[in-house]
């Protein structure tokens, strides 16, 4: 019966992955007033962080990367800002 057990084990696996993925996604979509709520928060954070940076450095919007990874329990928000050459040069000297 081992091959049958294997068949069921594999089927179990992909559906339980599906369930985990959905639970994480839906938890985020339901919290903070739906998905738009969460995305709005990320956008707000992005906007304000960029305003602070803009006070010190002129940044090109195309050189700013925003990444999110939603997990169960917590999410990662990653904002990469490419700082212009002149400034990093000035700081170094």
């Amino acid at each position: 019966m081992s091959f049958l057990a294997n068949i069921f084990a594999r089927r179990q696996q992909s559906s339980s992955v599906a369930k985990d993925r959905l639970q994480i996604l839906l938890a985020h979509e339901r919290s903070s007033g739906g998905e738009s709520g969460e995305s709005d928060l990320i956008r707000q954070l992005h906007k304000e962080i960029m305003e602070v940076i803009a006070r010190h450095v002129a940044v090109d919007q195309d050189k700013v990367q925003i990444k999110v990874d939603r997990g169960s329990g917590c999410s990662m928000l990653e904002i990469d800002v490419e700082v212009p050459q002149e400034l990093s040069g000035k700081r170094a000297s």
């Binding site: 994480i24 996604l25 995305s39 990320i42 956008r43 919007q61 195309d62 700013v64 990367q65 925003i66 990444k67 999110v68 990874d69 939603r70 997990g71």
Partner: peptide, 19 residues
């Protein structure tokens, strides 16, 4: 899990395509 901006944000100019 990784969606931040979407087609409409880009169409409306709220985000760059690369973002």
């Amino acid at each position: 899990r990784r969606v931040v901006f979407d087609l409409i944000n880009v169409v409306q100019g709220d985000a760059r395509l690369s973002q």
